[in-house]
Simulated scan of single mutants.
Amino acid sequence: MSLDTVVEDIRDEARARAEQIRSDADERAEGIVADAEADAEDILEERRQAVQRQIEQEREQTLSSAKLEAKQMRLEARRDVLEDVRETAEQRTASMEEGREELTRALLEDAATEFADDATVRVYGRADDEALITDILADYDDYEFAGERDCLGGVVVESDRSRVRVNNTFDSVLDDVWEDNLREVSSELFDER
């Protein structure tokens, strides 16, 4: 074997070895690229899912906020309507003429049960009702009209001797009736039956 043949064999072997290394490197590079592409696809899918979850969460939050705002607006509108109904009831009560004397008498009679017969009792009422109250008080001994109260009607009755004050105004009766019947009024107004 000649030196040229040995050199040629070494070159062939080196070329084969280089080709094998290049082939192995290409395979490894293809594997790395494939892994990187798969990782990139996984990351992309995770990001898509995260974005989709965020979009869904924001949509739910926005929808929930809108529902809450709509509910608050409905409640405010109901409150406004109920306030209007209450104001109308107060205006009608204040301007009521038919039955005013009977109701005032009944409220005074109810209050009178709280006071001893020998007590001097002061009765207060609405300025417009002074003549009416004075006429009613003619039926009671030791009862006197003592002045005005800012109210829709009715009486406030008190005595120093018993230190009792009875508020039997139309306002207090309306307050009690309103509280006792608010649910029914609301159901009737907003058709919640």
Rank of each mutant, 00 (worst) to 15 (best):
L107M: 14
R74T: 07
R105I: 13
A89G: 01
I21S: 12
D118E: 14
S172D: 13
Q61C: 00
D12V: 04
L132Q: 05
T62R: 14
D39Q: 12
K71T: 10
A34K: 10
E45C: 03
R149A: 13
E58Y: 07
L68G: 08
R15N: 04
T113H: 06
T5L: 09
V166D: 04
D142I: 01
A29Y: 10
I43G: 02
Y140F: 12
E102K: 08
S64G: 03
E148S: 12
I136F: 10
A40P: 01
A89L: 15
S2L: 09
A116R: 11
A146I: 01
R183I: 09
Q20F: 00
E102C: 00
Q61I: 06
D84G: 15
E19W: 00
D129M: 06
A29R: 14
E87N: 13
S159D: 02
D142H: 12
A106G: 05
D118I: 02
D118C: 06
L189W: 07
E58H: 07
S23R: 10
Q91G: 03
T88P: 01
E56Y: 03
E46H: 09
G153M: 07
S95M: 03
R78L: 05
D128N: 05
R11A: 04
D141E: 14
D160W: 06
D135K: 14
Q49L: 13
R122M: 09
S65I: 03
E109H: 06
R48E: 14
D171A: 04
A66R: 10
G147Y: 09
E144G: 11
E19A: 02
A131F: 04
V185M: 13
E101G: 01
I136C: 05
S2E: 06
I21C: 02
S187F: 07
E8R: 09
R78Y: 05
C151S: 15
E69S: 14
S95W: 00
R15H: 02
I10V: 12
E30K: 13
D160I: 01
W178L: 03
G31S: 10
T113R: 13
I55N: 09
D117G: 09
D12A: 03
D117Y: 07
D12G: 14
I10Q: 13
E109D: 13
G99W: 10
I32W: 03
D39V: 08
V156N: 04
V51C: 02
E97H: 11
L82F: 02
